[in-house]
Design a protein around this nucleic acid. Sequence first.
DNA 1: GTGGTCTAGACCACT
DNA 2: GTGGTCTAGACCACG
Lengths: 128, 128, 128, 128
Amino acid sequence: MNIKLDDNTPIYLQIMNIFRQMMASGKLKPGDKVAPVRELAGDYGVNPNTMQKALSELEKEGLLYSDRTRGRFVTRDNKLLNNLRLKEAGLAASEYGRIMESLGFTKEEALDFFMKATNERGQDKQNA
Amino acid sequence: MNIKLDDNTPIYLQIMNIFRQMMASGKLKPGDKVAPVRELAGDYGVNPNTMQKALSELEKEGLLYSDRTRGRFVTRDNKLLNNLRLKEAGLAASEYGRIMESLGFTKEEALDFFMKATNERGQDKQNA
Amino acid sequence: MNIKLDDNTPIYLQIMNIFRQMMASGKLKPGDKVAPVRELAGDYGVNPNTMQKALSELEKEGLLYSDRTRGRFVTRDNKLLNNLRLKEAGLAASEYGRIMESLGFTKEEALDFFMKATNERGQDKQNA
Amino acid sequence: MNIKLDDNTPIYLQIMNIFRQMMASGKLKPGDKVAPVRELAGDYGVNPNTMQKALSELEKEGLLYSDRTRGRFVTRDNKLLNNLRLKEAGLAASEYGRIMESLGFTKEEALDFFMKATNERGQDKQNA
DNA sequence: GTGGTCTAGACCACT
DNA sequence: GTGGTCTAGACCACG
């Protein structure tokens, strides 16, 4: 369950971000069917109208498209998806920088921490 | 407000993390008074017992101490707080690596993204 | 059955001490299974949550460990158990001194009483 | 409050021991008035008949005496009280020996622990 | 008013 | 059936 955080970000934007992340990381793949609005609304504990807004905004961005009869699907536009992936990576990098700055570390120190962390996980052997 | 994320992490651990971050970043300073258990419970929308558990666990770690009648305070053990800061940095670095990996980027690419992101923000002029 | 003693010591601490004594004296041996929380709670006439707290505190001390589905067990860390044994001995010695002091005896008299008591029981022939 | 220990000792004997300890240590002094049976029964959470039995047994031993109209009092027989004090000391010594034996220590080791414990408390400067 | 403790009762994940 | 977590609500000691 969740705790109450003082996050002023509108709920539909929070949801859009979650979907963007799932699409960028391949958890949602091109052409995948998206669950019905009402089901998703239940899953995330939000009003169906809010969920509807989030999904239609994602459609405006081209990341989703809907077929009135069959439902809603993830775009097959790989270029768009790759741009999304690059954007999400930039956000993650920025967020990492923001945290390290708040902890009082320099850019160089942040790099050191990252090198050390990835070496421990052997991440350099992994790629997409 | 919040949306429902399927996070299995126990609430009291989530709260402990929030407080750790605040202490590591200096948002909570050595000797600072922590709000009363019941008030914090209200703030985070959890039961007072859950909040009590989170805070007493942080006491066991030495990060907080309590004076039965006056309230609860942040430790003045700067060594402990600095260790916390280092640990939080490591966690942030690891999390960044985890995300970049899930997005299918290599370590080198993750470094590039980080360099680019920090240059845009001019973080290299900031230090502890 | 029991009589009501005005003992302010929290129940969970009393229980922790009982278990520490059993582990120190070998009544509970390394690797031994500990009875289920609910059963112990019944045995000692306390709420299961109180017993849970006592046992999880002992886990934090490393004296017990739990396997989510199989139950809870005594540590196999013999060094830790021996430290416990030394500590319990110190507590017993201190308690004996405290009692003799309250009875108005000097340290030397306390020694005499101990010598006399052990001679009567022939304890000197016993060792670990 | 109390936990349920599997102590088969009859309740009235447990209570007698408590009073003996209080008289031996001077917490109850010669001539002191003892609280009314019903009050004590409430304090210790036992049946008034049980408390009555405990106290009348202590009378048989000469440690208490009762004045039908004024109540019950601690004996003024100092020789009797001193014998009690010696006896309680012997019991404490024996109990200490029993515990150390159960922990697997020899008599000599028990002596060492006692010396160490009392030195830490500076008890040797205290006497009756 | 503060933290601390306890109880009763519920739900969950895991196997 | 196990340990783990959470909530609701109560009481206590301390000052």
